[in-house]
């Protein structure tokens, strides 16, 4: 009975195979120097080249900081959303979602106009005499983190919010009834219950963060070069496709490893939000 319907997914499978898996295999082959030769020198370069190492370190550092900040802020927003009245919840959801729909480019430029040294915020601060000289908020790593956190917060908020709505409120009440202060009930009961969601949201934000391109390029002032941009330059400008392939494979495998890790820890169905 079901067999004829299996045919219906064939085009989709063929599409993914032809337009995604096939090029991916080609990319993997390229990264080993094929078809001209076979070698691991492009993978070796990832470990030995000081330039690539420092770029990878910048990427990891910024993505980690971004993930942590996004989780803390996202947790607060999700907590508020889960425990506010219906109207306020709707308002908050809207505030989180509306920027989510804006293009990443528009958002980066908006931050630039707001935060640059002759931007709105600095003009207001210096005008009011609060600071002597403009604060350096963009065109550096801080700017990249601000832009990335702003982009990634929804990815932290929604899984956390989904988890919080399923938390059994009686658990907190039970903790209170045996004498726990509100803060203690929160840290010892509420947070542990939402821990898998925190972990899942963290990995989600981290994975998205690894692939950022536009935000660091615009808000970093040119001095913050992250993985995606490095790959793009190698592909489009310097024609080092094998090196770009090796870096892409490393990115892909790290993402797969992360997803696998979460799937092991909290279950894939829960990670995908279908559990």
């Amino acid at each position: 009975m079901t067999r004829p319907y299996l045919l219906f997914v064939l085009p989709a499978v063929a599409l993914v195979g032809l337009m995604f898996l096939l090029p991916l295999g080609w990319l993997a082959a390229l990264s080993f120097g094929l078809p001209e030769s076979f070698g691991l020198e492009h993978y070796e370069a990832i470990v030995t080249s000081p330039g690539i190492r420092s770029m990878l370190w910048t990427t990891l550092r910024l993505v980690t900081i971004t993930t942590l900040v996004s989780l803390v802020l996202g947790y607060l927003v999700a907590f508020a959303m889960a425990h506010l009245g219906e109207t306020q919840r709707l308002m908050l959801t809207l505030f989180v979602l509306v920027p989510f729909w804006l293009s990443v480019l528009a958002r980066a430029l908006a931050w630039l106009i707001l935060l640059r040294h002759n931007g709105l915020l600095n003009e207001a601060l210096t005008g009011a005499g609060l600071v002597e000289r403009p604060l350096q908020l963009v065109r550096n790593e801080l700017g990249v983190i601000i832009g990335m956190v702003h982009f990634l917060i929804p990815y932290a908020v929604f899984p956390l919010f989904a988890a919080m709505t399923t938390v059994d409120r009686r658990l907190v009440m039970a903790a209170r009834s045996v004498g726990a202060r509100p803060w203690r009930a929160f840290t010892d009961v509420y947070v542990p219950v939402t821990l898998p969601a925190i972990f899942g949201a963290g990995v989600l934000v981290f994975i998205f963060g690894l692939g950022f391109y536009v935000t660091p390029a615009i808000l970093g002032g040119g001095r913050v070069v992250m993985l995606s941009e490095y790959i793009s330059v190698s592909v489009l400008q310097t024609l080092r496709w094998a090196q770009a392939g090796a870096l892409s494979m490393v990115l892909l495998l790290s993402v797969i490893a992360l997803v696998w890790l979460v799937a092991r820890a909290i279950g894939f169905r829960r990670l995908a939000g279908v559990g």
Binding site: G51, T58, G222, V225, T238, R240
Partner: peptide, 15 residues
């Protein structure tokens, strides 16, 4: 030298 120059320059000015 273009390829090498761009790569070394980017490495040099970033990080």
């Amino acid at each position: 030298h273009y390829d090498e120059a761009v790569e070394r320059w980017l490495d040099g000015i970033s990080g």
